[in-house]
Structure formats: structure tokens, C-alpha cells
Design a protein around this nucleic acid. Structure first.
Lengths: 153, 153
DNA sequence: CGTTAAAACTTCAAGCTTAAAGTTTCAGGC
DNA sequence: GCCTGAAACTTTAAGCTTGAAGTTTTAACG
């Protein structure tokens, strides 16, 4: 197989990844909207916070979620309005603030996460465990290459 | 392995897919912006049109790209302003319009597509052909399940 | 014909997203 | 004690995205 054929195959693979990801996200978005009156970005923020009981700084949040700083500002703002999240002052640094789930936010997220796991389980039901293994490695290889891009160049 | 363990594995796999997809999209977005002063959605529309020389109706575009109708309206609007795309009247149906690449749009997209293929080739360089095979099948299984969701239910 | 339902779009409001610019605060030098 | 640069955010402008509502046109039925 020639070099350019390999490139075409990689392109096709990427288009497949993209199509599947969009389909899954569309499904999740709709389920979250209808079942919990929330959005994917809000779910993502709450998921990140649920894994850090002590909270996360705004900069940590945007770093974990790989989105821009200004983006997080708005989403957290709305989550605060909803009472799912609160901002705490960081002692010794008046620039920073730490974001945590409120008790209500924790309870709400627990319900959302349980449903979310079931949705994913159903969507990925036809994926064989062996295929999942190879897939995970391939995806990690892609992510790793992009992470190290700036360092090596 | 228990049922719930399998569900957790599927969740982890999804999170991997999501992370890799976001990384790739971020890279592509930045490359398109810096190299061609364009965006991912515009590239996607032009890519769809480049595969249909006779053009696509607005509804066909949104169906192919799996985005909402209103979304396509705005993107095409801006592509028309840029001179990359034009709208034609559809004879016999005054509601519809057909969108096509202009000659300038075709030439510009050819340059973008060539670069895009190289970017993807580099990003996916570490993915073995065998892994790609299994991955493609798994992704198709996911997409298929979501496509048939409404029919079966 | 006239009515009615659906199709093909566009518009709208709300929210998401980014890159860039701006603000406040902090940490080191001098 | 100041300056200077960086860090941690917020704000802003532009564009993307959706779901819902609105407009015009078509098609079908009686």
C-alpha cells in the first residue's frame, strides 16, 4: 500500500471517529436536556468537580476540560445561579477562586451520572471488549502525539 | 467481569474517544485559522459541497452534516460573503435553494483539503493499520445503533 | 378551487466557544 | 519600598449551535 493510500485511510478513520462522536454527543445532549434540563458543558463541569471534592480553581477546571478560560467563567456562573456549585475564596490569593459542588449539586449530579452511565452502556453495547482495548490504545496514541506537539517542536 | 464493570469500561472508552476527538478538533481548528483564516464548520460545509459538484440544498447540507437547519443558514451566509459559495434557485420550488462551490471556493478548498489530509496523517501516525480496522468497526457499530434508535423504539 | 398539512427555509433567544484584550493581584528583583 | 512581568480571572466581539417559532411555498384532498 502506498503512502498516500495510508493517508487516505487515516482520513477515513478520522471521519468515522468524528461521525460517531457527534452522534453520541447529540444523543447525550438530548437526554440531558429532556431528563435533567441541563446541558453537556454543565454536566462536564459537574463531572470534573465531582472527582475533586475539595474543589478546583477556575484555571484548573479549564485545564482539565481543555476549554478556554473565558468559557468556564460563563458555565460556572450559570451553575452558581442554579445552586449546583459555589465559589470559595482562596486564602492567600485574592485573584483565584475555588469552585465546589454544593450538597444539592452533588445529589443532582449523582442522579445524572447514573443515567449517563446507562446511556453510554447502551450506546456502546455492540463494541466488543477486545476492540475496545485496541481502540483505547490508538486513541491514547493520538492524544499523546498532540500533547507532546509543542514540546518536541 | 460483572455487568457494572463492563459499563464502567464502556464509560472510560467513551471518555477516551471524547478526549482524543477534542484534541484533534482543537488542532485542526488552530491550523485552519492560522493557515487559511477559516473555521472548522466552514471547512465542513465546503467539504460536503466538494463531494457534490451539482450542489446541495440547505436541508441536504444540514442532513449530511448532522447539524440543525438554522445553523447551516448562518454558515452558508458567511461563505457567500467570502465568495466561496453561491446559492442558486431551484426550478420548480421557490422555497428551496441549492448551494454550490464557486470556482474560487473549489480552488481554495483544494488547498485546504490537501493540508488537512497531511495534518490528519501526522496526528494518526501512531495508529497501526490493524487497530484502525477494529476501531472502524466499533465506531460504525456505535453510529448504527444511534441511527436505528428511533426506528426500533 | 379552497382548505389544510407539510416542506424548506429563516429568524430568534439562549447558551456555548474561542482568541484577544483588559483588570487585579502576586512574586521577584533592585 | 517600587517596578516589572507573570498569573488568575473576567470581559468582549465574533462566530457556532440548538430548539422553537415564524414565513413562504407546495402538495394533497375533497
Amino acid at each position: 500500500m502506498s503512502e498516500t493510500d495510508i493517508a487516505k485511510d487515516r482520513l477515513r478513520l478520522w471521519l468515522r471517529v468524528l461521525k460517531a462522536t457527534r452522534s453520541v454527543e447529540t444523543e447525550l445532549r438530548e437526554n440531558l436536556r429532556q431528563g435533567f434540563a441541563t446541558t453537556l458543558p454543565r454536566f462536564d463541569v459537574m463531572a470534573a468537580l465531582s472527582q475533586h471534592v475539595t474543589g478546583l480553581k477556575m484555571s484548573e477546571l479549564s485545564s482539565v476540560l481543555k476549554v478556554s478560560n473565558g468559557n468556564v467563567t460563563g458555565i460556572v456562573e450559570r451553575l452558581v445561579e442554579d445552586g449546583h456549585v459555589l465559589r470559595e475564596k482562596v486564602p492567600g490569593d485574592r485573584r483565584a477562586s475555588r469552585v465546589r459542588l454544593t450538597p444539592e449539586g452533588e445529589a443532582e449530579f449523582a442522579r445524572q451520572a447514573a443515567a449517563h452511565e446507562q446511556w453510554i452502556d447502551g450506546i456502546f453495547a455492540d463494541v466488543a471488549p477486545e476492540a475496545a482495548q485496541g481502540m483505547a490504545e490508538a486513541l491514547d496514541a493520538v492524544a499523546r502525539r498532540l500533547e507532546n506537539k509543542d514540546e518536541t517542536q
